[in-house]
Amino acid sequence: MSLFAAVAEPAFVVPTMLLDISFLALLVVVAFAIVRMRSLFGIVMLQGVYSLVSACWFVSLDAVDVAFTEAAVGAGVSTVLMLSAMLLADRKSTPVPMRRQVGALAVVVLAGMAMLYAVGDMSAYGDVHSAANSYVGMDYIAKTAEEIKIPNVVTAVLASYRGYDTFGETVVIFSAGLGVLLLLGLNGNSGRWVARPNGQMLNDHAAPSAGLATDNRSEEQRAEPDQ
């Protein structure tokens, strides 16, 4: 603890910044690998790694709650969802010809330049007169204890001051989850759906990932001919 009592001397700020920079470098490597890789299973695993690295980065930026959400949703749930989507499709993605990538590259470059342009308008780190540190933000911090009577300001904003907003988000996420569950059939219906990648009809036997799986159906199901 006395170590960080001495944080005021800038010698110790630099190493944690080095941590941030090395995490960002790892993120760049993973992102390029995701774009370049053709094996869909490798891409799913790399996406899990991407969210683990960004969770580490968020922790070193002192945003532990964001990091935890990122690790739970990114590395946990969405890996499983992506895998179940992959079982319905081809195992490798086909390479896109170069001339069709030019438009996407132009859009990405334009958006990045717009963001770099907007960086100039950002207030300095810890500025007292920044928007977050003046108007309603200070109100929340000052009045939460007496108005909502709970110690955590973030929880008060999410659940009380902007309760309707949070309710709407919950409805959106719920319906999205319902749609994903209906599409993928995680309730035991997976493999009974018919997918048609590359114009080729697939059932659960002919699915590209079928070779990876053991047949777990019962004898009478196995005896039935395919629909």
Binding site: G76, L83, S190, G191, A213, T214
Partner: peptide
């Protein structure tokens, strides 16, 4: 994190073996 990592790996392996979480 450690617990979640474990559960996630089990889920992925189970999914690969049985093509279903059910």
């Amino acid at each position: 994190y450690a617990l979640m990592n474990f559960i996630g790996t089990i889920a992925v392996l189970k999914f690969f073996n049985y093509q279903s979480l059910d």
